Simulated scan of single mutants.
Amino acid sequence: MTRRAAYAAVGSLVVGLLSVLPASPAAAATGQISGLAGKCVDVAGASSANGTAVQLYDCNGTGAQQWNVGSDGTIRALGKCLDVTGNSTADGAVLQLWDCTGGANQRWVVTAARDIVSIAADKCVDVTGNNSANGTRLQIWTCTGAANQKWSAPATGGDPSPGGFVVSEAQFNEMFPGRNPFYTYSGLTAALGAYPAFAKTGGDTVQRQEAAAFLANVNHETGGLVHVVEQNTANYPHYCDWGQPYGCPAGQAAYYGRGPIQLSWNFNYKAAGDALGIDLLNNPWLVQNDAAVAWKTALWYWNTQSGPGSMTPHNAMVNQRGFGETIRSINGSLECDGRNPAQVQSRVDAYQRFVSILGTTPGANLYC
């Protein structure tokens, strides 16, 4: 998967947790949260006492079902916060109402895919036992995508993901369930600052489509974020172009494919390193040892290189030229125009799955 030869010159969610919450969250929306069988998230007995159970109940419009969903990550009713009992992150930990403390167990992400995810546990609000009876207790559980974890909640207009990234950690984990632990979500979000236009250009749909397109191509290049380095070690000595004036100071076999886009060749390590302010020519191993550096090299290619295509993948998405043009820019000389339709289809399948997870549409021109 290391086609960059032809292109010369080419863990845990970080959220601004507050030690003290404001009296009422800014950028919030209030209303019912409905889910399984059309029933609502409800405070038992409309009681505001600490420890009151949060349950499923027929929607009735009372104050016990009016939830204030804030862009600060809190979800409140009756002046108190939705809380995971005992600060637990275990499957089956039940939800309750409690004084707002600013704790991570009171912080939530409402995703475009209609999950409500606990930031502390990276688990979803879940109806216990898939039971739609009135009074069924709500809990956190590993996100499964099942109907008993899907909710319609008021839109906040805010996004508690790091830097406003359109992909939450829960969605990232859903995309890459078998990923190598090296490829951390925190590494990705730490890298975003290197290219601030990425997944931040255009409207919400375009931003989500670009993030999905990038991750779909990354998925294909790494076998689902499994491979950190190129698997065919026999190729390693091939990626040194001695015609470059700087040569191969790290060694003849040091510039093999690494990272989410499988960066390879000495001239690409030199160009990426120069752009990022990192000496990758002399220390290419940073790409396989530092998750943030690895992600930065992938974003460097995505945002600045056109490869065998006519535009960068970033421009292809923000100018609505379609996902197919990103394939052309990454590996068009080997896959596009009928050269390898199975590989193209693999990328398209991942893209369609990822846009679904992000709650948007794929747009036109999926193929190259």
Score class of each variant (00 low, 15 high):
Glu230Asn: 12
Gly73Lys: 12
Asp126Met: 00
Ala37Tyr: 01
Ala44Gln: 14
Ala23Arg: 14
Gln106Ala: 04
Cys240Pro: 12
Ala190Val: 01
Leu280Glu: 05
Gln139Thr: 08
Tyr185Phe: 09
Thr128Met: 06
Tyr256Asp: 08
Ile119Trp: 06
Val117Asp: 08
Ser12Lys: 13
Ser168Thr: 14
Gln106Gly: 07
Arg339Thr: 11
Ala316Asn: 09
Asp290Val: 15
Phe182Met: 14
Gly359Arg: 14
Pro25Leu: 04
Tyr185Glu: 01
Ala64Ser: 13
Gln66Pro: 11
Pro308His: 09
Ala77Met: 07
Asp42Ile: 03
Leu281Lys: 04
Val84His: 13
Gly307Trp: 08
Gly11Leu: 02
Pro196Gln: 11
Gly38Arg: 10
Gly251Arg: 11
Gly35Phe: 00
Asn130Gly: 13
Leu82His: 12
Val10Asn: 13
Phe182Gly: 13
Gly158Trp: 09
Tyr256Trp: 13
Val348Pro: 04
Gly86Leu: 06
Trp151Lys: 02
Trp67Phe: 08
Gln209Lys: 08
Arg4Val: 15
Asn283Gly: 09
Ala250Arg: 11
Asn331Thr: 02
Glu335Met: 09
Phe165Glu: 03
Ala5Gln: 08
Tyr7Ala: 09
Trp285Met: 08
Ser152Ile: 14
Ala49Ile: 03
Gln171Gly: 03
Asp337Lys: 05
Asp337Trp: 09
Glu174Gly: 06
Gly45Thr: 07
